[in-house]
Simulated scan of single mutants.
Amino acid sequence: MGQAMTTTQFYLMGRRQSTLTGYLRHRATYKEGVQDAAVVLEGGGSSDSVDLSDKAVIVTGANSGIGFEVASYAAGKHARVYMFCRSMERGIAAKERIESLTRSKSVHVIECDVSLRSSVEKAVKEFEKKESSLHALVCNAGVLLNERTETTEGDEVTFASHFLYGSYYLGKLLRPTIDKKEGRVIFVSSGGMYNTKFPSWAIATSAENCGQAYSGNMAYSYAKRGQVLLGEAWTKEWGPAGPKVVSCHPGWVDTPAVQEAYGSQKKYLEPMRSCWQGAEGIAWLLSTKQDNLASGEFYLDRKPRTKHIGGPFFSSGSFTRNTEREAQEMMDSLKSKTGV
């Protein structure tokens, strides 16, 4: 009953908040400037007047979709942008497109498969050779597979890329370089996290669903719920003097990944947002003053949103809520698995 109610409420709430219609309604309430595109050159339209000069930004999965839009935005605001991409060939092609759009000469590609511990370690070392301070880490990369697939290191790919190495391990390794005064870590989570709480470590890493066979959607949802819990945990661990940590939902965005995952079922998510409309709220999290961010919160369109549904009349209920002990067990498992 809990799963059915939660899934139904997630869809109904998404119809109101996550579609293009929801974005346009939320945007009308913005108090800070907003752009109609990721890149607005002088004289080319309305700019939000942000300046990220002298700031370094990392965006994972930056060669396409939402990641490409966020990286383009940061480059257009004069940041030094580091695109962490699994494919150097696709990364370099995306870098050249961004340079053409922004006229920036400060865009860099670092090869990184965020599903692999070894690749994340290598990428961080390469970044630290170039930079001593990081303004923003945007953990955006990941995949959603319909068949269980393991990495060469023996981890389930979806969970490893979105959460285990692509968020936790990457964030842990980069923590010493993140600027305390203005720095932030942004987990690009998903409304899919509304479907579940974080289960036991054994279930999360195998992506079984109630004893059934592997479910790609549940592997994704577990990882996305994990990112939200991680944001809460690091907020407590780092304290008010540390960098801000937030998770966010881009809304229902028409990306190649969505097309691949949902196919003809995508019609139930329409009208969908463009990539920039989904990325715009993430760009704001990246660029706004740190004081405007509520650490540990889950954002959609510049505003913290509820983290739980499933109760009567869309109340938070308990179906997707982890106890403090369960959340700590997740953190302990992450530390045990990665050693940090």
Rank of each mutant, 00 (worst) to 15 (best):
T8K: 09
T8N: 05
Q9R: 11
Y23N: 09
T29C: 02
G33E: 05
Q35T: 06
V50W: 05
D54W: 05
S64K: 15
F68R: 09
V70E: 13
G76L: 08
M83N: 08
C85K: 01
A93G: 09
K95A: 07
L101P: 00
T102I: 09
R103A: 04
V107Y: 00
H108V: 09
V109Y: 03
V109K: 05
S118I: 01
K122S: 14
A123C: 15
V124D: 02
K125F: 00
C139I: 00
L144M: 14
N146C: 05
E150C: 00
S161P: 06
G166D: 01
Y168F: 14
K172V: 10
L174V: 07
W201P: 14
N209E: 12
C210K: 13
Y222S: 07
G231K: 00
A233M: 09
W234S: 08
K236E: 12
G239F: 00
H249N: 15
G251V: 07
D254W: 12
A257S: 13
M272Q: 15
S274W: 01
C275H: 09
C275V: 14
Q277T: 04
G278R: 08
I282H: 01
K289Q: 15
Q290V: 07
Q290M: 00
D291S: 08
L293V: 15
L293W: 03
L293K: 04
E297D: 07
D301K: 03
R305G: 05
H308F: 05
I309Q: 07
S315I: 10
S315P: 10
F319M: 02
R321E: 04
Q328T: 13
G339Y: 01
